[in-house]
Structure formats: structure tokens, C-alpha cells
Write a protein that binds this DNA or RNA. Sequence first.
DNA 1: ACTAAGTTGCACAGGGCTGTGCAACTTAGC
DNA 2: GCTAAGTTGCACAGCCCTGTGCAACTTAGT
Lengths: 233, 233
Amino acid sequence: MPTTLTPRAPRKDALENREAIVAAAAIVFRRDPEASLDAVAAEAGLSRRALYGHFASRDDLMAELLVRGGTRISAALLDVHDDDPRVHLALVGAAMWSEVQQVRVLAQLAIHGPLEKTIADALVPVRASVREAARNGVARGWFRPDIPVESLARLIEDAAIAVLDEAVRTDLSDDAGRRLVMSVGLSVAGLSWQDALALIDATPELAGPTSRTADPASAGPTSRTADPEGPRA
Amino acid sequence: MPTTLTPRAPRKDALENREAIVAAAAIVFRRDPEASLDAVAAEAGLSRRALYGHFASRDDLMAELLVRGGTRISAALLDVHDDDPRVHLALVGAAMWSEVQQVRVLAQLAIHGPLEKTIADALVPVRASVREAARNGVARGWFRPDIPVESLARLIEDAAIAVLDEAVRTDLSDDAGRRLVMSVGLSVAGLSWQDALALIDATPELAGPTSRTADPASAGPTSRTADPEGPRA
DNA sequence: ACTAAGTTGCACAGGGCTGTGCAACTTAGC
DNA sequence: GCTAAGTTGCACAGCCCTGTGCAACTTAGT
């Protein structure tokens, strides 16, 4: 008995439409987190009614967006680590750049609504990573020690979001965008623009696109310690 | 005939209530620009119906908030100028800090809605001021030249907003808040945190609260040029 | 080609918001 | 203390949104 009870397999175009809806939601909700489902359906080229065939409710769609964004971001952060907190911070920035769209949607949805808590959960790893880098950087005298690391970490996050916005707005190249996210993050952390760019240029891991998808030989945690004292210490 | 035709003067508590509404709107709309008038009225301790006695419509109330914010911010910017773009930028930051509440409300309202244009108008002087400082700073080699000044100016603005948020959240002292706004602005512009703080400490105008409300002898444009080469040039 | 999966358009109920009218009430000004 | 200014609560219409039901239609899978 090949087909036990299921009289037919689900149609493939339905799956495509589901994807289209999610994609449309990402676009629309990034612009306005409180946009109507009508707007989402229109963006997806479907009717509002059809949308309810894929998602039981607005919150359902939101949840889908959240888990997708969270998953991708977490994945992008997986192999990000460096003993040098400056490099680590830059790497986090680069990872975020590789998932700009997702990050932007999440950040936008985080502004208000009952999703706040769920979103906060999704971004916990990022926050922890940034916070840890901030703490380390301050301890080593590279980052500004005049404000609490918690505040510093938040300011770095906000700056990064602003850069992502600006990058999208001015349609930056992939390389320029990644560079900018990294350098502005380091700037807010306390480095001069010269030091930030010098560090980025002097560090192989920060050069190319996210090292993933490259040869598996260079995978795994990095942990160099080039230039131990920093450009100006 | 002292009272020509007006049978009675307007009551004073009505004016107080009007103020209360505006203040409440500032509080509520800063948290959520799309909050209901019910929420505003509640915050003001009035009924929703009474609110309509003072403002014909929601947009009316919004407009009032806008002109007030715009006016105060513009006023705070009036005597802000310095030949040194770094000092100038810091002064703008300090001026914004002196009007945190107003700036926050405007920035929040700017996010969406048909007010965008009006708000943009209200913030034109600030933007122009920051942009000019950015251009100057880049020209003199103090600020990062690797991105267009327009982008740099926007990033500085966004960072400043983030600092204002953080300052309000952590309940920073007046002095610490002003210092932070100035230093982070300079950081994003490209200075190291040491240079930023050194500049702030070494520059008299950046020390005390906004020089206004002090003796009129020290009023008017400042235009010094202390430390022409900058801390590290 | 047959059929069920998927889509569409419409209609509808329910909820929240705005803006208005009105009667009753409280309060400031003279 | 008289009186109008101002407030309150209620009721109402209108708008936009969500979520659902249903009949008719189009399309993918076999």
C-alpha cells in the first residue's frame, strides 16, 4: 500500500504561496510592524482570505517570522568567536550583516506589542555575545570604561541597527555594508575610526564574507590574538 | 468699558488642563506614537470627552506637540556654534540633551504617519547643523572620511537618539547624560573614546549646562579654536 | 479527465478607535 | 450666589481591522 490513507499529496504551489506570505510579511512588517494583513496579502499577491488558509491568525504569522529570524540569526552566530573582544565584536557585526533582513524585521517587531518577550528571547544569544565582548574589551582597556558595560552593549546594538538601516537605505555593497557595521560598532565601543578600520584590514577573519560556506578546513572557533596591545593601547 | 463684549474671561484651570493634556500626550506618545486619546486623557487625569474641548482632533494635538517640540529644539540650537566641528558637534549634542523629552517625542513621532514631513521640517536645523559639522570634521581629517557625510550625519543622529533613550532608561545624572551624548556622537564621528572625553574636558563650553540662562555676558556665538590639531591628529 | 487542494470574493460579527451631540454636573469668575 | 465655562458620562455613527463561513472558481496531482 503506497498511499495508505492520504488521498493526495499537498500541492507544491501552496508551499510557494506560504513562502511568499512570509517574505511579504517580512517586507511589510519591517516598514510598519502594525500593518494590516491586507497589506501583507497584497504584497504577496494573494487575497487576505487565502492568507488565513496558511496561518490561523496574525499572531501565528508573527510567530513564524520570529522563529525563522531567530533561527537564522542564531545560526549565523554559531561559529562566531574570538579571544580578541574587538575582533569578536566585529565578527558579531559581520554575522548580523549576513542576516540584515532578519535582524531588521526582528528589531522592528521588538519595538512594541506582546511579541517583545519572545523577540527578546530570540536575541538573547546576540546580546550575550555583545555584552561579553564589551566586558572583555573594557577589561583590556580597549573599550570605553566610563559607562556600565550593559549600557555600552545596548548602545553598540542600537548603533548596529542604525547602520543596517542606513546600509539598506543607501543600497551599500555587500562588502561596504559589512565593513561599516563592524567599524561603527567598534567606534561606539571606543575605538577611533582609524584604529577600527586598521583592525578590520589587519584581521583576516574580518575580510571576506562570513567564512561559512567556504572550505570546511577553516571552520570552527578562531581565537587568534594578533596585535595583543591594540593599535594605540 | 473694561469688558467690551466678552462676558467673562476664560478660566485658568482650563489652561492648566490644556497643559496637562499636552504633557500627558508627550509622555504617552513617547512610549507609543499610536496610543489612543483615551490613554492620553487618562494620563492627564481627564475624560476623553474633555480632551476634545481643547483639541478638535487627534492631529490637532499632534500638531501642538510638534510645534512645541520644534520651537524648543530650535531655540536650544540658537546660540550653538563653534569653528571646531568637534566642539560644534558636541554642543549640538548638549543642546539636544537639554531638550531630551522634546527630542524623544519628536523622534518617536517621526517613525511613521503623515506627520513625518512636518517633523522633518522641525528637525531641519538640527540635521543641517550636524551635517555641516560632519562635513567640516571630515575635511579637517578628524572624522571618518570613508562614508558619505550624509550617512555619517544620520548615523550620528541615530546614535544620539539611542543615547538619549539609554540615558532616560538608566536615569543618568544631568551631567553624565550630557557627557555621554557628546562623547558617543564624537565616537561615531570617528574619535576614540579617550580623544572624545579629552576634548570635552579640555573645552570650557562643553563643561557646564547649556550656557543659556546664565549671565548674558557670555551669550552669542563662541568660535574659539582651542587645540587646533586635535589630540592625535 | 477527475478530483481534491487551494484560491477568491463576499458577507458578517465583533472589537477598538475617532469624533460628535446632549443632558447633568462641578467649578471659577464676577 | 449667579452664571457661564468647563467637565463628565453616555450614546451614537463611522471607520478600519480581525477572523470566520460559504459558494464558486482555478489549478495541481494522479
